[in-house]
Design a binder for these strands. Structure first.
Length: 671
DNA sequence: ACGGCAAGGATTTTT
DNA sequence: TCCTTGCCGT
């Protein structure tokens, strides 16, 4: 409390009504949330179990949980609810599963699972276009985010295309119900609809959560905001923290307009701006402010630096992308040597994952340790999906998707022909594949050999599942991995023994997470296998031992992934038209989000910022000429140091940039 | 069941 | 260009 600035203090102590904290980059918003939770408990008489804080990422939730535990002590923090939106929804669904008509032990489908199911459903239709499949996925997600059930979607369809999509939405829903499965969007939609329609449930949750805090509010979508509104009710005791300038997920349904909506829905809203920045040098902040001023704003905000003015921002140009990577590495090495810095003080930020490869190559060639965050995630590796599918079947045998994945992996002679027959039986009786294997007709409709293998397998699973639920979960798990000879399977199917080894290491890693979660620790309660499986699908695993965090490695990630982080020295690479304002965003006329993305990147830097760009770049096999990003031209040129390599913007380009600014200003005034 | 080859696609991806 | 996907042949 002592160390808060006046604005932060106001944000913390205003508790009598709805509160919006506009928190600029690096303005100490997490601190405000932590302090506010403590203030609510210690000064305002709130019980910890009546307070909930929601974030978007598990990482953010975990960090918050740790910091609160550190400042409050374990006893006082007991019962405090700090989770992601999705985990909160999951908890609510679990508590209310009877009302929702769900059997306990339901499966959670991740995006890939849902996509696979939809693919299957659309195969019968004349929807062969993969583009149309993508559209369908998006449409269903949109419907769910707008809290529309299939019946409403069908009723409100405006054309044949939409009507077909609505029909498929309904079939999708039916299949999910049959599998006893939910997808990510359901985790928000179902609790929200339940609260909206059931007064008893609503008042129960409103009395359970009496103060609500929301982090990264600008990233909420419609249903998430509805959930917030329903949870806080008339009393409206809540604080949301957000920054419209850091809204970079609108392509995923985030509605930064929710910030404006909040003022309309709650006229008594208290607005607090955090404009003091504790992260970056004055020059970096000035650049960021000037850049983002090109976007229209509902709430004006200007970050002030507490630190010195700092070094000039450099713009390094290269002939092509290989040269770009070389120059970054050369600059980095020289800089590190002159400043006695560590590798982990440097970040290379880029727009698209594909850009990473070339930098990876250059770093490797120079024996520089690096770490790439993001990219193909742990959970999309096939070996992890396999084991997860096994676990899902143990917990929920009706999960046909998971069952299909594992029944012949490793190969046990349950090939397509057998499955086809089981599928037909299951279909005719309206039961799951697994249940079909226990049907009285099962043995009559299958060749003896096939029936035999299927029965041995399913009975083995039942036995394992029983054991896992009854008590010795760990033993059951161990036996399962041993029982399927998974290690042999990996060696059989991997291109090299080395790859198999890697994959087995991943499996062991997963196994370790599972055991940790089953056992629990001082911050987390022990979980049941059922809980472990859903939490893992939500990517919410316990912190693995921190040997990686300590390592001295150059940090590489996309601009999106960098949000919330900070680094002493930042290379923002590929600052070119078509790449940083990405071409597809230009096509859609959404430069503003790209500008925010650049803003996020710039404000990651604490001490120094270096942009790089190429004169030409190979794209889809052909060389294309590159122009400097318009964002570079929007920055204060006095603070930029263009590296002489003859890529200075021409007078014509400056003129162009000036024109667009005027056009934008006009657009703003017209609004 | 698996390797070979052609075609197609190539932002971002908190859960 | 270079990766993934899917189809086809053995």
């Amino acid at each position: 409390m002592m160390k808060l600035n006046p604005a932060q203090q106001q944000a913390v102590t205003y508790v009598s009504g709805p509160c919006l904290v506009l928190a600029g980059a690096g303005s100490g918003k997490t601190r405000v949330i932590i302090n506010k939770i403590a203030y609510l408990i210690q000064q305002c008489g709130y019980k910890a179990r009546h307070i909930a804080a929601v974030t978007f990422t598990n990482k953010a939730a975990r960090e918050m949980r740790e910091r609160v535990a550190g400042s409050l002590g374990k006893a006082e923090a007991r019962g405090l609810r700090i989770s992601t939106f999705h985990t909160l929804g999951l908890d609510m669904i679990r508590a209310e599963h009877k009302v929702l008509g769900l059997k306990p032990g339901f499966s959670l489908f991740d995006d890939q699972d849902s996509l696979a199911l939809l693919k299957e459903l659309t195969e019968a239709e004349l929807l062969e276009d993969k583009d149309q499949l993508q559209q369908l996925v998006k449409r269903i997600s949109d419907w769910k985010n707008d809290l529309m059930l299939p019946a409403q979607a069908i009723a409100s369809a405006r054309d044949a295309q939409e009507a077909l999509q609505a029909q498929l939405y309904q079939r999708y829903r039916e299949h999910m119900t049959a599998y006893n499965a939910l997808d990510f969007d359901d985790l928000i939609m179902l609790p929200t609809l339940l609260l909206a329609n059931d007064e008893e449930v609503r008042t129960r949750w409103q009395s359970r959560i009496r103060y609500l805090l929301v982090d990264e509010y600008q990233d909420t979508n419609t249903s998430q905001y509805q959930l917030v509104k329903l949870l806080v009710g008339e009393r409206a005791r809540f604080t949301v923290v957000g920054d419209d300038d850091q809204s970079i997920y609108s392509w995923r349904g985030a509605k930064p307009q929710n910030l404006v909506l909040l003022g309309k829905d709650f006229p008594q809203l208290e607005l607090v701006k955090l404009e003091e920045n504790y992260r970056s040098s004055g020059r970096i902040l000035k650049a960021a402010n000037i850049l983002i001023a090109n976007n229209p704003h509902v709430y004006e905000k200007r970050l002030r630096s507490n630190l010195g003015y700092g070094e000039p921002i450099r713009v390094v140009s290269a002939n092509n992308e290989d040269h770009e990577a070389e120059r970054v590495v050369a600059n980095l090495v020289r800089h590190k040597f002159m400043n006695h810095a560590n590798f982990k003080d440097y970040a290379i930020l880029y727009r698209g994952n594909h850009q990473a490869r070339i930098f990876e190559k250059a770093l490797m060639a120079n024996r520089i340790p690096y770490k790439i965050s993001g990219g193909t995630s742990f959970f999309s590796r096939s070996e992890i999906k396999d084991i997860m599918a096994y676990l899902r079947v143990l917990v929920n045998p009706d999960d046909d998707n998971a069952f299909l994945r594992i029944c012949n992996v490793p190969k046990r002679g349950m090939g397509p022909a057998t499955l086809e027959k089981i599928g037909r039986l299951a279909n005719s009786k309206q039961i799951s594949l697994f249940a079909a294997c226990f049907d009285p007709d099962f043995e009559r409709q299958l060749p003896p050999q096939a029936a035999e293998t299927a029965m041995i397998f399913t009975r083995w699973l039942v036995e394992l599942g029983d054991r896992a639920v009854r008590g010795d979960t760990l033993e059951a798990l161990k036996e399962m991995i041993r029982g399927i000879n998974y290690e042999d399977h990996l060696y059989d199917t991997s291109p090299s023994p080395k790859a198999a080894e890697m994959r087995m290491k991943n499996v062991s890693e997963l196994y370790r997470w599972i055991t940790d979660m089953l056992d629990g620790d001082e911050l987390e309660e022990p979980m049941t296998l059922e809980q472990v499986v859903t939490r893992l699908t939500l990517r919410d695993m316990m912190e693995r031992s921190s040997d990686e965090d300590e390592a001295d490695q150059v940090q590489m990630m996309t601009l999106h992934a960098s949000k919330g982080l900070e680094f002493p020295y930042v290379f923002l690479v590929g600052a070119e038209e078509g790449l940083l304002p990405h071409q597809s965003s230009l096509d859609e006329g959404n430069v503003e989000e790209e500008r925010r993305l650049a803003y996020v990147g710039i404000t990651r830097a604490q001490r120094e910022l270096i942009f790089t760009l190429c004169k030409e770049r190979r794209q889809y096999g052909e060389q294309i000429k590159c122009e400097p990003s318009r964002f570079l031209l929007e920055l204060p040129q006095d603070d930029l140091e263009w590296e002489a390599r003859k890529a200075k913007p021409s007078a014509e380009q400056r003129q162009q940039s000036g024109k667009t600014n005027i056009a934008m200003l006009r657009a703003m005034l017209n609004k």
